[in-house]
Lab assay of single mutants.
Amino acid sequence: KHCVKCNKAITSGGITYQDQPWHADCFVCVTCSKKLAGQRFTAVEDQYYCVDCYKN
């Protein structure tokens, strides 16, 4: 599998969101770069925000 963000191979520790593979380090808030894996977040038009950034 290849990460949908960076297009590099996922060798271990990847996550899946909406049936797409991601590196955990690539699945981050677009505003603050906080890792979103296992966290609550909001998706708006294929942009992902942590709860704090989305509220602001």
Rank of each mutant, 00 (worst) to 15 (best):
K1N: 14
K1A: 02
K1Y: 02
H2E: 06
H2R: 04
H2K: 13
H2G: 06
H2L: 09
H2F: 09
C3V: 02
C3A: 00
C3G: 02
C3Q: 00
C3R: 01
V4H: 06
V4N: 12
V4Q: 02
V4S: 07
V4C: 08
V4E: 01
V4P: 08
K5F: 10
K5L: 14
K5W: 14
K5G: 15
K5V: 10
C6L: 01
C6S: 04
C6Y: 03
C6I: 02
N7V: 13
N7W: 15
K8T: 06
A9Y: 06
A9E: 12
A9W: 10
A9R: 12
A9H: 06
A9G: 11
A9V: 14
A9C: 15
I10E: 01
I10S: 02
I10G: 01
I10F: 07
I10R: 02
I10Q: 04
T11W: 05
T11F: 03
T11S: 06
T11K: 03
S12A: 15
S12R: 08
S12P: 05
S12N: 04
S12L: 07
S12I: 14
G13M: 09
G13K: 08
G13F: 03
G13L: 05
G13T: 07
G13W: 03
G14N: 15
G14Y: 05
G14S: 10
I15A: 09
I15Y: 11
I15D: 08
T16F: 03
T16C: 15
T16D: 07
T16Y: 02
T16R: 13
T16S: 14
T16Q: 08
Y17S: 12
Y17N: 14
Y17A: 09
Y17M: 11
Y17K: 11
Q18G: 14
Q18W: 07
D19T: 10
D19Y: 12
D19R: 06
D19Q: 11
Q20W: 05
Q20A: 12
Q20D: 04
Q20R: 08
Q20F: 05
Q20T: 12
P21A: 11
P21Y: 14
P21K: 06
P21G: 07
W22V: 11
W22A: 05
W22N: 03
W22F: 12
W22T: 05
H23C: 11
H23Y: 00
H23I: 00
H23R: 01
H23W: 00
H23L: 00
A24H: 11
A24D: 03
A24T: 01
D25K: 05
D25G: 09
D25F: 04
C26Y: 00
C26M: 01
C26E: 01
C26W: 01
C26P: 01
F27C: 14
F27P: 02
F27K: 02
F27L: 09
F27N: 01
V28L: 06
V28I: 15
V28P: 04
V28R: 13
V28C: 09
V28E: 10
V28N: 15
V28Q: 14
C29I: 01
C29Y: 00
C29N: 00
C29A: 01
V30K: 09
V30P: 06
V30C: 02
V30I: 15
V30D: 02
T31W: 06
T31V: 07
T31H: 05
T31Y: 15
T31P: 04
C32V: 00
C32H: 02
C32D: 01
C32I: 00
C32F: 00
S33G: 10
S33C: 07
S33K: 05
S33R: 08
S33N: 11
S33F: 02
K34Q: 05
K34D: 09
K34L: 09
K34A: 11
K34S: 13
K34G: 07
K35N: 07
K35D: 14
K35E: 11
K35L: 13
K35Q: 12
K35H: 12
L36H: 04
L36T: 03
L36R: 03
L36I: 15
L36V: 07
A37M: 06
A37I: 08
A37P: 10
A37T: 11
G38A: 11
G38N: 09
G38S: 09
G38K: 09
G38T: 07
Q39M: 10
Q39T: 10
Q39G: 11
Q39S: 11
Q39E: 12
R40Q: 14
R40I: 00
R40L: 06
F41R: 11
F41E: 14
F41I: 15
F41N: 15
F41K: 15
T42C: 07
T42M: 12
A43K: 09
A43N: 14
A43R: 09
A43I: 02
V44M: 08
V44A: 12
V44R: 09
V44F: 15
E45Q: 06
E45K: 10
E45C: 10
E45N: 13
E45T: 11
E45A: 13
D46W: 04
D46I: 06
D46L: 11
D46E: 04
D46F: 08
Q47M: 14
Q47Y: 08
Q47E: 10
Q47F: 13
Q47A: 10
Q47I: 03
Y48E: 06
Y48D: 03
Y48R: 08
Y48V: 12
Y48S: 07
Y48I: 13
Y48L: 12
Y49A: 07
C50Q: 01
C50E: 02
C50T: 01
C50D: 02
C50G: 01
C50V: 00
C50A: 01
V51L: 10
V51P: 10
V51Y: 02
V51N: 14
D52L: 05
D52F: 11
D52W: 06
D52K: 13
D52Q: 10
C53Q: 02
C53F: 03
C53G: 00
C53S: 02
C53L: 00
Y54H: 09
Y54K: 12
Y54N: 04
Y54A: 05
Y54Q: 09
K55G: 15
N56P: 10
